[in-house]
Design a protein around this nucleic acid. Structure first.
Lengths: 140, 140
DNA sequence: CAGTATCCTCATGGATACTG
DNA sequence: CAGTATCCATGAGGATACTG
């Protein structure tokens, strides 16, 4: 799986190009990165509870910058996971919601996130064991 | 969900500290990032097929750098997902395998990855529609 | 073989200011 | 309100050389 970057004419994103050792392309890895990205995960999970406006998402996610939220939403919209509904009113109002495809992705992402949450105790215990072992071998 | 970084004394990793808007900490987000990281995903999925040596993993994943593979393996080992079995022989031989906890994570990661792979067609169609819409509004 | 150590690039992503 | 544009810091991550 080698990785290079290439500029795409049409989109601002500089997309990674994934390849296996034998030269086969892996475009699905890129889609996977979109749904597992730092803010993508949170957007998908938040939208499972229903449509949200831009600023509602911002507040729900704490302090993501406008830039990153906009970028994340554009990527997810382009991939067909998120539907963008812009109302032609003043002040502007834009609602984001999951497409059926997006819901399938979000369900899986939420499953993984919830598993992670449930497993946190085990992970912390493992870390303590690991760090203790390291101290031992450092001291002894 | 605000994010800052903090140096951890014991580990080389500079860990992100996640917080929701109301100040609650989200350490599970960090664990989630480990299992969904670029190389973490590939390691977990590859190890679902059985134990692998360091260089076997490198080859299977194409061209990940030694540094990144080592870092990824250490993080996954510390979190308790990967078991490291170093044989005291010359030349050195180290086998990596999934722990029971790691297998649970890997199953979910593989599920998401395979779903992504199956959905690739739909994603590409969505991208074409998105790009076409963009061209229309640019031209018209 | 299985890693560390070091250096270095550049893309991620935050802060700020501005606009329809 | 819902973004875009711009600038900038920093850390992810690659290349290379070295070691037990």
């Amino acid at each position: 799986m080698s990785v290079t970057t290439e500029s795409t004419e049409n989109f601002t994103e500089r997309a990674r190009v994934y390849q296996t050792a034998d030269g086969a392309m892996c475009p699905h890895r890129l889609v996977l990165e979109h749904v597992t990205s730092r803010w993508g995960v949170l957007v998908l999970i938040e939208l499972l509870d229903g449509a949200r406006r831009f600023s509602e998402l911002r507040r729900a996610m704490g302090r993501v910058s406008e830039k990153m939220l906009a970028q994340t939403l554009q990527t997810l919209e382009r991939d067909g996971f998120v539907h963008r509904d812009a109302h032609p009113v003043i002040p502007p109002r834009v609602d984001y919601s999951l497409t059926p495809l997006g819901r399938e992705a979000a369900d899986r992402v939420r499953d993984l996130a919830e598993w992670t949450y449930r497993s946190l105790g085990e992970v912390f215990e493992a870390r303590e064991r690991y760090d203790a072992r390291r101290e031992d071998s450092a001291a002894g």
